[in-house]
C-alpha cells in the first residue's frame, strides 16, 4: 500500500462551513424577496470593499442568472448545496478563483461560508473559512447571543454554526458489509454519516461524508479535534480491511480493480452511477499501487466531472442516452495513459 499525504488513500476531501445571519434581517422562512435582494447587495458591497485582494480573488455569481445545469455542476463539485442549486431566486455565490472558498448568500442561512481542501485537512479547511468570516464580521453585524452563540434559521446549527465534514472513500468497508455498523457507531458519538451530496443523498461510489452533529457546547477547535479522531479511526479501519481483503483473495481484488479500469478505458456508454462505481474501484487500484500513472485527486475530479450537470454544462448534451455516450467518451479520453 502506498502511504499518501493527508490520508488521500481514503480521505477524498475536507469541507468546513460556517452559518451566519445578519442581525437586522428576517430569516429565510420569513424574509421578503425585496429584503433578500437588498441583503445580497449589502453583503456584496461589504465584501468587495473589504480589500483589493477580495476583489481580485473572488467573483460573485447571481444564481438565478445561471442555467440549471451549471448550478447542478456547482453542486456536483460541492461548491453549493443541493437546496441552493434548486432554489436560485436571489441566491448569490461568492467564489474564489481557485474554487476552494465560497460564500452562499441567501441559502438556508443568510451566509454559508465554505472552504474545501483535498484529503483530510480539518485545520487547513477551517482557517481560511474563519479568516473570511472575520473579514465579513468586521463589516456586517452578525446575529449572536452570549448563551446560544451565532443564531441560525434552524436551531440544529445554533452556536458555532460550524459543520465540518470529511468525504471518505470506503470501498473495503462496503465490500465487507460494514457500512451500516460504522454509521451507527459514529452516530452514537454525535457524528453523522451521509451520502456524497449531504442530507438525504445516496452513498454512491462508496463515498461517505462524516460530519459533526453538535454545534453548541464545543468550541470550533474541539469540534475539529473530535471529528478528526473519529475520521482517523474510520481511515484505519478501512486500511486494515483493504489489506485483509487483498490478502484473503488477491485475484478477486485485482480482478475487481482491473475489470473496472477496463470498462472505464473501453466502454462506449456509461450511466453516472456506473461511472462512479468503476471510478471507485479504479481509485482503490491506484492507491493500492496496482494501477500506475494516476493520482487519486485526478480520479476524484473525474467523479465530479462525470456527473449529469457537469456533462451537460461541459458538452451541451441534454438527452440522457447521448449523455451516457458522451460520459464514456470523456472518461476514455481522460484516462488515456500519457
Amino acid at each position: 500500500m502506498v502511504e499518501i499525504q493527508k490520508s488521500l488513500d481514503v480521505a477524498v476531501s475536507t469541507r468546513v462551513r460556517l452559518a451566519r445571519n445578519l442581525r437586522e434581517y428576517p430569516f429565510k422562512s420569513v424574509i421578503s424577496r425585496a429584503k433578500q435582494a437588498e441583503l445580497l447587495e449589502k453583503v456584496k458591497d461589504a465584501f468587495f470593499s473589504s480589500s483589493a485582494q477580495a476583489k481580485k480573488e473572488f467573483s460573485l455569481l447571481y444564481m438565478e442568472k445561471l442555467p440549471e445545469a451549471e448550478a447542478l455542476s456547482l453542486m456536483e463539485q460541492h461548491l453549493i448545496s443541493p437546496e441552493f442549486a434548486k432554489e436560485r431566486k436571489n441566491g448569490g455565490l461568492l467564489l474564489s478563483k481557485d474554487r476552494t472558498l465560497s460564500v452562499m448568500i441567501n441559502e438556508e442561512d443568510h451566509l454559508r461560508i465554505q472552504s474545501l481542501k483535498p484529503g483530510l485537512d480539518l485545520d487547513g479547511a477551517y482557517e481560511p473559512a474563519e479568516r473570511l468570516e472575520t473579514l465579513l464580521d468586521e463589516r456586517l453585524s452578525f446575529a449572536f447571543d452570549e448563551r446560544l452563540g451565532y443564531l441560525t434559521h434552524c436551531p440544529t446549527n445554533l452556536g458555532t454554526g460550524l459543520r465540518a465534514s470529511v468525504m471518505l472513500h470506503l470501498p473495503a468497508l462496503v465490500m465487507n458489509n460494514g457500512a451500516g455498523k460504522m454509521i451507527s457507531a459514529v452516530g452514537k458519538l454525535g457524528f453523522t454519516v451521509r451520502g456524497i451530496y449531504g442530507e438525504g443523498s445516496e452513498a454512491h461510489g462508496d463515498l461517505f461524508q462524516v460530519s459533526n452533529q453538535l454545534t453548541l457546547g464545543l468550541s470550533e477547535r474541539d469540534t475539529l479535534i473530535r471529528l478528526g479522531d473519529v475520521v482517523q479511526q474510520i481511515i484505519l479501519q478501512e486500511r486494515t480491511l483493504r489489506k485483509a481483503t487483498y490478502e484473503r483473495q488477491p485475484a478477486n481484488y485485482e480482478d475487481a480493480v482491473f475489470r473496472s479500469y477496463g470498462i472505464l478505458r473501453y466502454a462506449r456508454r456509461l450511466t453516472s452511477q456506473e461511472a462512479l462505481e468503476h471510478l471507485s474501484r479504479l481509485r482503490l487500484g491506484v492507491v493500492s499501487g496496482l494501477i500506475k500513472g494516476y493520482d487519486p485527486r485526478q480520479i476524484d475530479e473525474l467523479c465530479m466531472k462525470a456527473q449529469a450537470g457537469s456533462i451537460i454544462s461541459a458538452f451541451g448534451v441534454t438527452d440522457p442516452q447521448q449523455r451516457d455516450v458522451k460520459r464514456a467518451e470523456f472518461l476514455r479520453g481522460a484516462l488515456e495513459p500519457a
Partner: peptide, 27 residues
C-alpha cells in the same frame, strides 16, 4: 419556550466558541 428543544438537540450546553467583533469586552 425554545430552551427545552434546544437542549434536546444540543444537550445542556453553553456556547463556547468564537466571539463576534461586536461582542463587548465584558463578554
Amino acid at each position: 419556550a425554545l430552551l427545552p428543544s434546544i437542549k434536546r438537540i444540543h444537550g445542556n450546553a453553553e456556547y463556547k466558541g468564537k466571539l463576534p467583533v461586536s461582542a463587548g469586552p465584558e463578554i
